[in-house]
């Protein structure tokens, strides 16, 4: 049975990530007005895309800019050709980087930042808070609100940096229970929080996180 829905409810980066993590072989059709786009998955990799007049990675990048439209995912359908060789997470990261330049409002920029973070392996959720611990944006509205804990963590870490004459730390990692909480300064007045599966080694994903926020 095909999975159908609206991009307003389930955004394209999440859909792509879902199909790739499930290692699906499928055809995704996106209807935008009277135009149609197609993304093909093969064993969890994006292997081909079309969105008139573009094909391959360019088509994916253009499809990622769509904020509404209908989608349909049909399992078991293979791509007619292979036009994409980039791994799905790099493809998503590059795509979201590219559309950053088209995004103007802070709200949208924050939203895209969190979507980029979501492409990193093992990320459960992400949020942006201000220095007072108030939530600015979140990938998951049901995530427990402990912004004050992170704000205090950030403050104490900066004070620690001053004590050893090193300034503010670049990354703070706190392992608690099944989650690793990553606290990262973002711009001048925001703090990015990433909730990572504890089994994922930080050293392995640090470069991906750096790339996503750069």
């Amino acid at each position: 049975m095909a999975l159908v829905g609206d991009l307003k409810d389930l955004r394209l980066p999440s859909l792509i990530q879902l199909n790739c993590m499930e290692r699906n072989t499928a055809k995704m059709t996106i209807a935008y007005g009277n135009k149609y786009g197609f993304i093909y998955f093969d064993d969890g990799q994006v292997v081909h895309a079309e969105f008139d007049p573009e094909m391959g990675e360019k088509a994916v990048f253009r499809l990622l800019t769509l904020e509404d439209g209908k989608f349909k995912v049909e399992s078991g359908i293979r791509a007619p050709i292979k036009s994409i060789n980039t791994s799905w997470n790099n493809l998503l990261l590059d795509g979201l980087h590219k559309i950053d330049s088209f995004v103007e409002s802070d709200e949208k920029k924050n939203h895209y930042l969190l979507e980029k973070i979501f492409t990193v392996r093992g990320v459960r959720s992400a949020e942006l808070i201000n220095l007072e611990g108030e939530r600015i944006a979140s990938s998951n509205s049901s995530e427990g609100d402990i912004g004050y804990v992170y704000a205090l963590t950030f403050y104490e870490a900066n004070k620690t940096g001053n004590l050893i004459s090193n300034g503010n730390p670049q990354f703070i990692s706190i392992a608690a229970g099944s989650v690793r909480h990553i606290v990262i300064p973002y711009k001048e007045d925001l703090i990015l929080i990433i909730h990572l599966e504890i089994k994922i080694k930080l050293d392995l994903v640090l470069d991906m996180i750096k790339k996503a926020i750069s």
Binding site: G144, I146, Y148, V149, L152, T153, E156, A157, K159, T160, G161, L163, I164, N166, G167, P169, Q170, F171, I172, S173, I174, A175, A176, G177, L202
Partner: peptide, 26 residues
């Protein structure tokens, strides 16, 4: 330095989160 570290661990503890590791990267 130790007190700063303990305050981070304590703040998580107040929210019933048991910190086992804390790492600061410069």
């Amino acid at each position: 330095l130790g007190i700063r570290i303990l305050r981070v661990i304590g703040s998580f503890h107040l929210k019933a989160l048991n910190v086992t590791e804390l790492e600061l990267y410069w």
